[in-house]
C-alpha cells in the first residue's frame, strides 16, 4: 500500500513557521534582516500612530472582503476576493506588530485588533461602509487601493526601515488590487443597463467618503486622475457628491464600524483568558 503516509507525522511537534503550511512555500519574510530599532530622529510615538491607523484601514477592509466568502458572484471571484483580503490582513498584522514595537506597550497584533473599542479605531470610513453589492465592493476597492498604493509608494522610502519594508511589500499587492478592481469597474460600467445603474449608485454612495482619505493622507491629485481614467473607460461620470463631514483618523466613524467590530471581536472577547 503506497498511500499510508498521510497521518504519520501529524502528531509530531511542528518546528516550522506559519509560512510552510498556511500559505505555501518559498514565501519571503518582508522584514527579514530589517533592523527594528527606531532610527534616530524619528518620532516613535508618531510612527506608532501611523502604523496603527494604516493597520486599522487594512483590517477593516479585509473584514468586509471576508464577508464575501461563499457569496461571490462566481467561484473564480471567490478566490480573487479572498486573495485580496489575505493581502490586507497580512498588511494589518505587520503594521500592528510595528505599532506594538514603537508605542512603548509591547502589545501584540491581537491586542490592537480585538481589545480596542470603535472609538479607538483610526481607519478611514470608506473601509467600514457595509458591503453592498459587487459594484459597491469593486468601486471601494479601486479607490481604496489607488489611495493606499500612492501612499505606500511614498512610504516605501520612509525613514523607518520597518515601515518602508512593509510599504514596499504592500505596493506590489495594492497594484494588483487596484488593477483587479479597475477591470471590474470598467466591465460593470460598460456591461448592461443594470450593472451601469449599480455602478452609478455606488459612486453616489461612496464619493462623500473620499475626502476622508485625502484628509488622512493627501494624494488627491494622483488618485483622482487615476480614477478619472478608469471612469472614462467605464463610461461613468465623476460624481460630485458633497463631503460627509468627519474623519476616520480622528476616531469619528459611521454607525457601521461598531457592529463590524462586535462580530470580529466576539469570540476573542468571550474568552479573554484563552489562547488560540
Amino acid at each position: 500500500m503506497s498511500d499510508d503516509h498521510v497521518y504519520l507525522s501529524l502528531a509530531e511537534g511542528h518546528d516550522d513557521s506559519d509560512a510552510r503550511w498556511a500559505f505555501g512555500t518559498g514565501f519571503e519574510d518582508p522584514l527579514y534582516g530589517v533592523d527594528t530599532a527606531v532610527p534616530e530622529g524619528a518620532d516613535a510615538a508618531e510612527l506608532a500612530v501611523q502604523c496603527l491607523a494604516l493597520g486599522d484601514d487594512a483590517l477593516v477592509l479585509a473584514q468586509r472582503l471576508a464577508e464575501w466568502v461563499t457569496r461571490a458572484p462566481e467561484l473564480e471571484e471567490e478566490v480573487a476576493l479572498a486573495n485580496i483580503g489575505l493581502d490586507l490582513l497580512g498588511q494589518a498584522r505587520l503594521l500592528y506588530a510595528r505599532a506594538g514595537q514603537t508605542d512603548g506597550t509591547g502589545r501584540g497584533e491581537d491586542a490592537y485588533a480585538y481589545f480596542r473599542d470603535p472609538d479607538d479605531f483610526r481607519n478611514v470610513r470608506l473601509a467600514e461602509l457595509p458591503g453592498g453589492d459587487f459594484a459597491f465592493s469593486v468601486l471601494r476597492l479601486l479607490v481604496f487601493a489607488g489611495w493606499r498604493l500612492a501612499h505606500f509608494t511614498e512610504l516605501a522610502s520612509a525613514p523607518d526601515p520597518v515601515l518602508a519594508a512593509i510599504a514596499a511589500k504592500g505596493v506590489k499587492e495594492l497594484a494588483y488590487h487596484r488593477q483587479y478592481a479597475a477591470e471590474w469597474v470598467v466591465r460593470l460600467g460598460d456591461g448592461t443597463d443594470e450593472s451601469r445603474a449599480r455602478m452609478l449608485a455606488a459612486l453616489e454612495a461612496q464619493a462623500p467618503y473620499w475626502e476622508d482619505l485625502f484628509a488622512a493622507h493627501d494624494v488627491r491629485d494622483a488618485v483622482l486622475a487615476d480614477l478619472q481614467l478608469v471612469l472614462d473607460a467605464a463610461g461613468l461620470p465623476m460624481p460630485s457628491a458633497p463631503f460627509e463631514p468627519g474623519q476616520g483618523r480622528d476616531g469619528e466613524h459611521t454607525g457601521h464600524l461598531a457592529p463590524l467590530l462586535a462580530e470580529l471581536q466576539s469570540v476573542a472577547r468571550a474568552h479573554p483568558e484563552a489562547t488560540w
Partner: peptide, 12 residues
Amino acid sequence: EGAWVRAAASAH
C-alpha cells in the same frame, strides 16, 4: 445574486 455580474462581464 451574482447573475447580473456575470451577465455584465459577458456583455462588456
